[in-house]
Design a protein around this nucleic acid. Sequence first.
DNA 1: AAACCTATGTTAGCTAACCTTACATAATAA
DNA 2: TTATTATGTAAGGTTAGCTAACATAGGTTT
Lengths: 134, 134
Amino acid sequence: MRSSIRRSMPLFPIGTVMKLTDLSARQIRYYEEHQLIHPQRTEGNRRLFSLNDIDRLFEVKDLLDEGINMAGIKKLLLEEGKTVVHSDLKDEEGKGKKDFTDEEVRKLLRKELINAGRFQRPDSSFGEKFRNFH
Amino acid sequence: MRSSIRRSMPLFPIGTVMKLTDLSARQIRYYEEHQLIHPQRTEGNRRLFSLNDIDRLFEVKDLLDEGINMAGIKKLLLEEGKTVVHSDLKDEEGKGKKDFTDEEVRKLLRKELINAGRFQRPDSSFGEKFRNFH
DNA sequence: AAACCTATGTTAGCTAACCTTACATAATAA
DNA sequence: TTATTATGTAAGGTTAGCTAACATAGGTTT
C-alpha cells in the first residue's frame, strides 16, 4: 500500500525524534547499534528517521520500561516480521514457528514477572510533549 | 479536533521540506519573509516546519505556477487564513485535555503523515518524490 | 531604451546540531 | 567480586542550517 511508503520515508532529524520520544540521542543511537531501527542517512551522514522508526522506538522504550533487556527486545521485535506476535508468547502452540527455545521463553517471562510493576510511567500527555517542544 | 495540533507541530528541518516540496531554501525563506508561512524556530534559531507549513508551501507553489504573483497569493491565502488559524488556536486551548499515551501519540502522528498524501497532485506526488529521496 | 521590480540564485562567514570515538558509571547478572 | 548492560558525557570533527549581501533574468513602467 502507498501508506507504507510514506511510513518509511526518512523525514526527521534526531533532535525531533528525541523530543517526540523523550529518548536521549545516546539511547536512540544505541538502539540503532542493536539493529532495532535502521534510520536512513543524509548525504552528509546525518540520521533521518521515518515514522516506522519512531514507532519502533516507542516500542523499545515501553519494553525497557517493563524491565525487558535488549536481548529480549531484539527477540521480540525482530520476530514480528514473520509472525503476528503481538501480545502473547503463551498459547501459540501448534505451529512451533517461533525461534524461541522453551528455555528462552521461560527466562523472558521470569524476568518480566520479577520486574513487573516496577515502573508506572507518568504517562506524559501529548499536550505536555507539545509544550516542551521548541 | 486534535489533528490541528498535530498538524501544527514543528517537526521538519528545512532540508526535509526542500525535498518534499521541491522548493529551494531561498524560496522557502522568501515565502516566510512574505508571511505566507510561520515556521517555528529551535532554540538555536533553526526553522522547524509543521505539516500545515508544508501544505501552505504547496499552495504557494501551485499559485506561482499559475502565474499569480506574491501580492496576489498573499491576498488569496491570508484571507482564508482567518478561519484556519483560528480553529488551530481553538483546539490548542481545549480544556478537556485527556492524556495521550505514547502509543496514541505515535498512532496519531502516523495517521497524520499518511493523510498528508491526500495533498498530492498528479504531477508531483509523494510517491514520486520518495523515489528521488535519499 | 533605460530604469525599476520581482522572484530566485549564489556566495561568504557564522554556528547549532549533528557525527564518531572513547571513557565513566550505576545497576544488574554471573 | 568481577563482568556486562544501558546510559551519560566529553572531545574533536563535519554538515546543514542561519543571516546578509550582492547578482540577475524576465517583466513592468517611464
